[in-house]
């Protein structure tokens, strides 16, 4: 398969993940959509690695995974703290910073 197909699939997954972030209200679901976007990027990197013939893309994808893991840890901890305080996991409820 030529890498174009993989990159095209990556684009589709990325956009779907982006739409998910925008329309869902549950914080955890939004997180998971962000993870989907990160995965799509990983796919693109690996496709580019196979295209260029060196392993740099894979190494970058590896680092992206590490960073995504760290981000999930901290993000979910924040979410837990907010939930304990407000008893709600909906992002629409945190709307005090408005005009």
């Amino acid at each position: 398969m030529s890498p174009v197909h993989y990159v095209a699939l990556s684009v589709i997954l990325f956009v779907i993940g982006g739409v998910g972030v925008l329309v869902r209200r549950n914080a955890i679901i939004i997180f998971m959509c962000i993870e989907l976007m990160l995965n799509a990027c990983n796919l693109a990197f690996v496709a580019f690695a196979s295209m260029h013939g060196n392993l740099d893309g894979q190494v970058i994808a590896f680092f992206v995974m590490v960073v995504a893991a760290a981000e999930v840890v901290v993000g979910l901890a924040i979410l837990m703290a907010i939930y304990r305080a407000r008893r709600s996991a909906s992002v629409d409820d945190a709307n005090l910073l408005k005009y």
Binding site: V21, V91, N95, L97, K98, Y99
Partner: peptide
Amino acid sequence: RWQTGFVR
């Protein structure tokens, strides 16, 4: 008015 407060 653009500052709706909604994260989304």
